[in-house]
């Protein structure tokens, strides 16, 4: 596959290099307000820190977005919505997860309703540590994501396609609060 420009034929690889260049300079995000992290999103988007400098813009619907921001802890009820949103997004798509609670549960480590490791349910490309992450940290995460895209390492969406069955199984278990051995109705 290729396209003639003058006497040079641009190969498919070159086109995809160009696509990588442009997709890294225009990351449209969907900031899913899943938890407290959402409070630091407005400062990042508005006049003090101004994310739009880097071509990052907030979007209204999942169809239009490239990056899904998981802003904070996820309850099981939210996870169901997050996965719906993630599946509606168009590839290539990336996930940035905020805060300690998405990494290992953070301060809600013994809560019955928050999932502890986001990685078990959807692939995550970049984590931001802290509670709360500072706006500088958020911008830093985006720049890291740009680097990863450039190096071709931000391939979470391909992993999701490849291990789709395993992810679905994990999601099904957590949605139904399925504990092996005790599934009788209370």
């Amino acid at each position: 596959m290729g396209l003639y420009i003058g006497d040079k034929m641009m190969k498919y690889e070159e086109w995809s290099k160009l696509a990588i260049k442009v997709s890294k300079a225009s990351l449209w995000m969907l900031h899913f307000c899943t938890g407290c992290g959402a409070i630091e999103m407005p400062p990042v988007m508005t006049s003090r820190y101004d994310m739009e400098r880097f071509g990052i813009a907030p979007m209204a619907t999942p169809r239009q977005a490239d990056v899904l921001l998981i802003t904070g802890y996820l309850t099981v009820k939210t996870l169901r919505r997050v996965i719906q949103v993630y599946e509606q997004m168009q590839s290539p798509k990336y996930v940035i997860a905020f805060g300690s609670c998405t990494i290992n549960g953070g301060m809600y480590w013994d809560s019955y309703n928050t999932i502890k490791h986001l990685e078990k349910y959807i692939p995550v490309d970049v984590y931001i540590t802290g509670c709360m992450p500072r706006p500088e940290g958020i911008i830093n995460a985006f720049i890291k994501l740009m680097e990863l895209i450039d190096e071709g390492k931000a391939r979470g969406w391909e992993k999701y396609q490849k291990y789709y069955d395993k992810y679905k199984e994990n999601q099904r278990r957590v949605f139904n609060f399925e504990i092996e051995g005790e599934n009788e109705e209370y």
Binding site: L18, A19, V22, S23, A25, S26, W28, T46, S47, D50, E52, R53, F54, G55, A57, D66
Partner: peptide
Amino acid sequence: RVGPPFYQNFIDVAK
């Protein structure tokens, strides 16, 4: 704010 570069919309469309 500072705002995006003036050619941002070309990049957006290409992406």
